[in-house]
Amino acid sequence: MKKNISINLFGTLYNIDEDAYNLLENYLQSMQRYFGRQEGGEEVADDIEHRVAELLWQRREAGMTAINIETVKEIIDTIGNAEQIAGEDKQESGSKEQGQYERSDGQYSRSQGQETSFKEEFNQFANDAGKLARDAYDKGYNHVKTHRYYRCANDKILGGICSGLAVYTNTGDPLVWRLGAIALTLLGIGLPLPIIYIVMWLVVPAALTPEDRLRQQGKQITPENLTQQVKEDSQQMIMPARETHRGCLIAIIVVLAIIFVVPFIAVLSTFFKMWMNMIF
């Protein structure tokens, strides 16, 4: 059994399951945001909405009474694959890869030269080390350029800082980051960590939209990727969220309490002990 709501699309009412509605709403919104940035793009998004309405109408004429999530997925599959844009991107990255391959090939043949003297060997070594460092730098630079750090609004214990780091660094399990942070704090090395955590909580935005989640993973915002992400979100029951800083405020109060109240109590208790000693 599923909760059902009714929507009005260009003057026609449709009954739609709640999860199907969320998926559809997300899809249309992300298309609007994507095409809205381009000139005349609102019109394209509007065309797509009309097309959705038409496909729904056709299905209703064919006897479908309530729209379920499978239907919405079908419709998204029919419309959503903007192969053109994704295709162009693919082509560019392909040629880049080839260039890199050729370059490393050249280096390989150079190192094959016979009878390398010590100097040459050393140069080779320095070259290799330099190349390694350069590669690492390039890789890091690329990563920073393509990925954006967000807090995970959908996978969080406090602010989603750790799960955000896990996604950003592509290290998979946020549990490692969480345990690490707790361990460092308890061991005393990471005493400023709670403060840093709260500052990050305040400063770093949360990943709220499917676009945010794409940027977080370093994927490009193409209609194809968006569609994919919207579908994944609906599978993982991620709803478009609004950001509240209530949790953060509570955390600040707790930390302030620990910083100020605990020493205060300690001082009080010493005084109390001294006072007792004086009396007796």
Partner: peptide, 8 residues
């Protein structure tokens, strides 16, 4: 043709 490419 993919429908999505048509509208742009």
């Amino acid at each position: 043709v993919m429908e999505g490419t048509l509208y742009p």
